[in-house]
């Protein structure tokens, strides 16, 4: 995949009906969605505020809002799938020895799986309302 097919027809000709065609389409659709999701994320957390002032209270306040949790869930899912599939393309291009390529993928996919679970837990497993109240009680 040193150079990806340049049109949908070329992609179909290259990949046939295999999963690679699905990934080729997915990278373009998720990429378009991520332009908006990631620009929004950067705007909220780096432009609207000074990112150098972010602390527990700020993050807990954001993660106590259902809209932010849903937004971040889409961001996490699309960014992880797009990013890890991109890493897979890079591994297949640059790691040439079959054995080393296999184990590089095993390591990357394992780390990605753990990080995805960690991110989902961060978003949904705790009540930051209660944690925020605990912080305010400290003051």
């Amino acid at each position: 995949m040193a150079s990806a097919p340049k049109t949908y027809q070329a992609a179909r000709a290259t990949y046939g009906a295999s999963g690679e065609l699905v990934w080729w389409v997915f990278m373009r659709i998720s990429g378009l969605l991520l332009v908006f999701l990631v620009f929004g994320h950067l705007f909220f957390n780096n432009i609207q505020i000074d990112a150098g002032t972010i602390d527990f209270a700020y993050v807990a306040n954001r993660l106590s809002q259902p809209g932010v949790k849903i937004y971040d869930t889409f961001l996490l899912a699309f960014a992880m799938l797009h990013g890890i599939n991109g890493l897979r393309y890079s591994i297949e291009d640059h790691v040439r020895k079959p054995g080393r390529r296999f184990w590089t993928k095993v390591v990357v996919f394992s780390i990605a799986g753990i990080v995805f679970v960690l991110g989902t837990m961060t978003l949904w497993a705790f009540s930051y309302d209660e944690m925020g109240a605990a912080v305010r009680a400290l003051d």
Binding site: V59, L63, M80, V115, F116, L118, F126, Y128, A134, V135
Partner: peptide, 17 residues
């Protein structure tokens, strides 16, 4: 992205974490 999700996940340890 991997690093960022890991560091933000530390928020799970709460205000005293």
């Amino acid at each position: 992205l991997l690093l960022h999700v890991i560091d933000i996940s530390l928020v799970m340890f709460g205000p005293e974490g």
